[in-house]
Every structure is written in structure tokens, then in C-alpha cells.
Design a protein around this nucleic acid. Structure first.
Length: 427
RNA sequence: GGGGGGUUACCGAAGCGGUCAAACGGGACAGACUGUAAAUCUGUUGGCUAUGCCUUCGCAGGUUCGAAUCCUGCACCCCCCA
């Protein structure tokens, strides 16, 4: 059992704890059960969940038992953290499908089958839905002094704002607090971890545990993973970065991390990877001495892609990266191309188009959707912005023939630096 | 209800009878440079079977050899007075 507390501390992952003095000893003196909450509103987690997920992984590796709790019930109500839109109720089928998707992703990070320290995924709707309103008020609500609740930052800030706070949102902390009590009773869970914005909810759970069970529970929060400009990690103009390969291809996932700004990379390495301190410090150094090599970003992207998408996902991402940034495309088969160009639009054409004179390049560009009109295609070619299989096209009367097929049936068209389209010639 | 102003390409904005596919700025796209960054520089930015042809300047008509530009009606927007 290594000293997890010290490791977390130098990584900067400890924002606040409920027992600064006791916690290190408590963690190193036995196997504990730890939980963190996740949002089951989609069938995949996104990059924002990576930090708590890695936290659980660190605890599991240090010999503790992780519990991931999906907020099937609390997710319907909404944390009163300035969200404007009402949450929608999900059907039980949707929720089940989402949980299944999330669990399959968690399996990459957590070990669900290793005896005493096996990870567990639970859904708080399973026990919340058992309560009647009166029962909940009697068993749980009775233990919440309103003056304490009013003292929480999340409530105070909302009360003084114009938006106000609905009774439902005000009650949110009771639900989350009860989760902790339930997990303690059913699973012996004694520590809750979460983002620093969860502090109020975490401590509410600890208070409730003491009142209802007389139990000594602990809480720990991590800093939020944000970029230096204050925006959230994991968001791009085109949407969130997901952990599911279906929603975000391994290539895009890899590229996201490869493109992290220098200033943010050190934090990401500490928060999201398991690299040794010495290695991370060497990378910090490299960002000063040889920033153009971006060794930190490469390592970060590599570690995370391997963890989430496995060695084969990483291999695909690396191969795709090589191709997307210049390498000529050759010696690949349809399967590999399909993997690599997973995000790229493609269009089917009959193989006969290639026969005889072949298919005019301008025609091909328009049909692929890469260019809106012949005129645009003509311009781009003249400007040197069009490539076939990553080889620049020189003349506008270039024609595609079977010799241009880079695999059994595919020709790869590219406009500019990164815009690709596949033409599939089926017989 | 009365008076005035506006509606131009992706956006903003010139043009006020021919030389207008329409200045200029932004954006976007491409190229060079570069660290797959930022900045910078260059080019392009209605369509086509392309030194020409076609369709565009709120909508519908009209005047004229010729209209984004003038006239009439309609729609929408803004301002001022009641």
C-alpha cells in the first residue's frame, strides 16, 4: 500500500479535506471504500469525468475500493450551480442503456473484478425511488437543520441572486448527502471525493452520516481542471470530447490532448496521468528547453489514448496522425483506412467511373462534398490546396483512374491542411 | 393617425442611370512561414460547357437603347411628432 496521500498532494489534486491531520494515516492503515459521482445523462462519459475517474483509479491502485455512483435520481433534479435549463427525466430504458455504456468505459480505468477491491457502479435511483416523500422527510429531512443548509455557499449565492432557488434545487443536497449514508450502510464507504464545487454537498453527507448513523465519514475535493483562460477542459467548438470511440474517434481524442496549450499541459500530466514525479518534472523542463518538440503533449496524448482506447486505439490514432500531417498514403487496406478516417465523410461511387478516361478531379471534389462548385474546386487546385492520397494535384484536368486507388476501393481526397473526404468505388 | 429614414453578396458597409459580379472592412477558404500554437505575409471569396455566357443588390411591376441606381405598388425594419 503506497502513500497515496503524498502522491495526491504533490500532484496538486487535494483542494480541501475534512480531516487534514487524520486522513493520511487513515488511508495508509487499511483498505478503505471511496466513492465519486458521475452523471448518467448520456451513454458515454466525457473528458470532464476523467479526473474523478482517475482519482478512483489511484485509490484502487493504492489498495482501496472504488465505488462510482451514477446520479440517476439526483441527475433529474439538478445541482443548483447556476444551470438554467430544467433537467429532463429519462426513461428507465434510457437510463439502463446509459449505465451500461458508462460501465464499459469505466472498465478501461477501473478493475471491476479483482476480489475485495473490485470497483462497483451503482445508481442512486435504485434506492431513492424506494422512498415516499413522507418517509424521506422523516428519515432524512429531519436531520437537516435549515440554518446549516442556508449557510452553504451554493445556496447563499443563489439566494442573493435574482434567479433565486427552487425548493427542489434546495433539496438537492439532501439527496446527495443521503447517497453517502446509503453507501456507508450498504458498502462500508467512508470517503467521498469530488470537484471543489462539491464541497458543500460532501460535507452535508458527512454531517448526515454522523446524525443518522453516528459514523465518522471523510471528504476530499480536487481542484477543477480548467485551462489557464478559465474555460473548461474537454470542450471544443464542435462539442465535448467523449470517451466513447463512437462519439469521439481515438484520433480526435489523441489530437485533443496533443493540442493542449503549453501552460495547461503540466496540470494535465499531474491530474490525469500516472507518470512518476521524476518523469513529469523532466517533461516540465522540456517544455522550457524544447517547446517545439511538444514532448509533454505527446506523452499526455499517448498515455490517455492508451488508457481509454487501448493499445490498438492508440496505434490507429498514431497512424492517423502521421497520415493527416503529411505522409503519403499507401500500402493500406480498406479496413485500416476506415479506422483511420473514421471521422471523415465519404461517398460511394460506382467503380465504372474510374474506367476509360477516368473521373475528372473537379467532379470528384464536388461529388465528395469537399467543394461546393466546380469554380471553387478549380480555384483550390490552382492555389495548390488539393491533394489525392496526400500528393498535391498540379493540373485542373487531372483525372482519377484505378491507379489512384490507395486501397482496394478507396481514394483519399484532401483540401487544405486537414479537410479530408473518402471516395469509395464499389463495383 | 402624421412626418422622415432604411432594406446591397456569409456579416458590416459603399455605390444613387452605362466603365457593377458590385469599392472597403471583417469573416471564411487556400498558400508561405511555424511547434498541428500565436502573430505575420500573399492569394481567393455568385454560377457555368469560361478572354465569353447566365443569375444576383427586400418583393412585384414600369420608364429607358441600358437600372443596384429613376417611377409605382407591396412587405418588413428604424426614428421623430401625436
Amino acid at each position: 500500500m503506497n502513500d497515496i496521500f503524498e502522491d495526491l498532494q504533490w500532484r496538486g489534486l487535494i483542494h480541501q479535506t475534512t480531516a487534514d491531520e487524520l486522513l493520511p494515516k487513515w488511508l495508509s492503515s487499511g483498505s478503505r471504500t471511496v466513492y465519486a459521482g458521475f452523471d448518467p445523462t448520456a451513454d458515454s462519459l466525457h473528458v470532464g469525468s476523467l479526473l474523478p475517474l482517475m482519482m478512483l483509479r489511484r485509490f484502487q491502485k493504492a489498495g482501496h475500493r472504488p465505488i462510482a455512483i451514477a446520479g440517476g435520481a439526483t441527475g433529474m433534479i439538478g445541482d443548483p450551480s447556476g444551470k438554467s435549463a430544467e433537467r429532463n427525466l429519462q426513461t428507465p430504458e434510457q437510463l439502463a442503456a446509459n449505465l451500461a455504456g458508462i460501465e464499459s468505459q469505466m472498465r478501461h480505468v477501473l478493475d471491476f473484478d479483482c476480489g475485495d477491491e473490485s470497483a462497483v457502479l451503482v445508481n442512486n435511483n435504485d434506492w431513492m425511488s424506494q422512498f415516499s416523500y413522507v418517509e424521506f422527510l422523516r428519515d432524512v429531512g429531519k436531520n437537516f437543520p435549515v440554518n446549516v443548509m442556508l449557510g452553504k455557499d451554493s445556496v447563499k449565492s443563489r439566494l442573493s441572486s435574482e434567479a433565486g432557488l427552487s425548493y427542489t434545487e434546495f433539496s438537492y443536497m439532501l439527496l446527495q448527502a443521503y447517497d453517502f449514508v446509503h453507501l456507508n450502510r450498504e458498502h462500508g464507504c467512508e470517503l467521498q471525493i469530488g470537484g471543489s464545487d462539491q464541497w458543500g454537498n460532501v460535507t452535508a453527507g458527512i454531517d448526515l452520516g454522523r446524525r443518522m448513523l453516528g459514523a465518522q465519514l471523510y471528504g476530499m475535493t480536487c481542484p477543477l481542471l480548467t485551462k489557464t483562460d478559465g474555460s473548461k477542459m474537454g470542450k471544443t467548438e464542435s462539442g465535448a470530447i467523449w470517451l466513447s470511440a463512437k462519439r469521439t474517434s481515438p484520433y480526435k481524442f489523441y489530437q485533443y490532448w496533443l493540442n493542449v496549450a503549453d501552460e495547461d499541459t503540466g496540470t494535465c500530466l499531474r491530474f490525469l496521468t500516472e507518470l512518476e514525479r521524476s518523469e513529469i518534472e523532466a517533461l516540465d523542463e522540456s517544455r522550457v528547453s524544447a517547446p517545439e518538440q511538444r514532448a509533454s503533449q505527446k506523452k499526455l496524448a499517448e498515455e490517455l489514448t492508451r488508457l481509454i482506447h487501448g493499445p490498438s486505439g492508440l496505434a490507429t490514432a498514431l497512424q492517423a496522425t502521421e497520415i493527416f500531417f503529411g505522409a503519403e498514403i499507401e500500402n493500406l487496406d480498406d479496413r485500416q483506412l476506415t479506422d483511420i478516417f473514421a471521422d471523415v465523410p465519404s461517398c460511394e461511387l460506382p467503380a465504372t467511373e474510374l474506367a476509360g478516361e477516368g473521373l475528372g478531379i473537379m467532379d470528384a471534389l464536388v461529388k465528395s462534398g469537399l467543394m461546393k462548385s466546380n469554380g471553387e474546386a478549380r480555384r483550390s487546385i490552382k492555389q495548390g490546396g488539393i491533394y489525392i492520397n496526400n500528393r498535391r494535384v498540379g493540373e485542373i484536368d487531372r483525372r482519377l483512374t484505378p491507379a489512384d486507388l490507395t486501397s482496394e476501393t478507396v481514394v483519399v481526397l484532401r483540401s487544405g491542411k486537414k479537410k479530408y473526404a473518402l471516395l469509395r468505388f464499389s463495383s
